[in-house]
């Protein structure tokens, strides 16, 4: 009884906060509702017995991705009135896209069957849930049978990351960079010099050494 009640609680919160993401007037509130939706989705994962996935969802999405998202939205100077203006003429397109997505999801869900080769391709049979905890079970599969696919997805992410850095990185002239080893190696004699100045002569500025 308790798990069923918990399921309905988490499911209701997920759906409600998902709705509020699009209905909230303030974009920051939207992001906060989105975070609540992620969090209750993690709760649903726990109820399904997938505690490893639940924790990863919280660590990766709630703890890192949504924080950056929140950062960006908070920093943006958003004009709410301007934002509301386009809603009427853009609504039909949004509805059409949404309907198409829904239809596609429906077709997928209804027509989904495993092909004949799947049983052959699935090299590891699924372990019994009660015997292996899911961290170990996932590790056993990902790092043995699917190691190449796993590594390849990691490399794709790496390429995407490097690409994003390369695209946004600019070299600006006149930027003073801090070089800590250079700063630590600096000695008093590099920084100043004591000179006896004769009356009426003056001295030239010392040339820069470092």
């Amino acid at each position: 009884m308790l798990p069923v009640a918990a399921f309905w609680l988490f499911a209701a919160i997920t759906v409600l906060s998902g709705l509020l993401v699009i209905l909230a007037k303030n974009p920051v509130h939207s992001v906060l509702w989105l975070i609540l939706a992620f969090f209750s989705a993690a709760g649903l994962f726990v109820l399904m017995g997938a505690e490893f996935l639940a924790m990863l969802l919280v660590i990766v999405y709630v703890g890192a991705v949504a924080v950056l998202f929140l950062f960006v939205v908070m920093m943006l100077d958003i004009n709410f009135v301007e934002l509301r203006q386009g809603i009427v003429q853009n609504a039909p397109i949004g509805v059409v896209v949404g309907l198409i997505l829904l239809a596609e999801l429906g077709t997928l869900g209804a027509a989904w069957t495993f092909g004949d080769d799947v049983a052959k391709n699935a090299a590891s049979p699924a372990p019994v849930v009660e015997q292996v905890e899911n961290t170990a079970a996932l590790g056993n599969i990902i790092y043995t049978d699917y190691i190449f696919i796993f590594q390849m997805s990691g490399l794709i992410l790496l390429v995407a990351m490097i690409g994003a850095i390369v695209l946004t990185h600019r070299t600006r002239p006149g930027v003073k960079r801090q070089d800590v080893s250079k700063q630590s190696a600096r000695r008093p004699e590099d920084a100043y010099e004591l000179v006896d100045v004769e009356v009426g002569k003056g001295v030239a500025l010392p040339t820069k050494k470092g």
Binding site: V58, I59, V62, G63, A64, E133
Partner: peptide, 25 residues
């Protein structure tokens, strides 16, 4: 006594940032 106790701790501590960002904003 969770099987993923350490991950739970990591997850909760990564949430801690929200209290601070929300209060600041």
């Amino acid at each position: 006594d969770l099987n993923v106790g350490i991950l739970y701790l990591l997850a909760i501590s990564s949430l801690g940032v929200y209290g601070i960002i929300m209060s600041g904003w």
